[in-house]
Amino acid sequence: MILETTQQALQALFAGSVPADGAEPDTPRANGVLTRDYKTHGYHLDAQVDADQLLAAVTVLDQAEFFIESITGVDWIKEKQMEVIYDFSRYDFDACRVVIRTRIPREKPEVPSITKIYAGANWHERETHDFFGIKFAGHPHLVPLLLPEDADFHPLLKDFKA
């Protein structure tokens, strides 16, 4: 039930495009909402959005009373891109896990911060900044969290050399 309404609400961000089916997409895939097989993937909805659609997509989930699970990044060095992945889930028994992802250019990784919507995104964004150097515009306190306070390196980058 919540799955369909959330899917429709997220699909509304991509006015005019056709909803994609659950088939494994080519990488890098086009933006849009996919339904995933929960049994193999562990989540139900998978939405790839543009960085400037991010706040709208997260607001949809906030209004539907999702809670934030985590935020993380992936360094796609071959495609010269970085990916930021947001996980959301629900407290009720209408199980619905939603993944929001966005791809940004590797040389200038920047996405808007969602701390104004979810206060709990604060540490997750700081951690992702630590590990990947992704900038979260509008974050109140983007300094190293897990790394030393003077750290200027990003250990999860694929070209990181210790």
């Binding site: 193999t40 699970e69 889930s89």
Partner: peptide
């Protein structure tokens, strides 16, 4: 190739 997620309930939470 793909992206997989698994949640479990530990003593401290999900």
């Amino acid at each position: 190739v793909g992206d997989y997620y698994q949640a479990v309930e530990t003593a401290r939470g999900s």
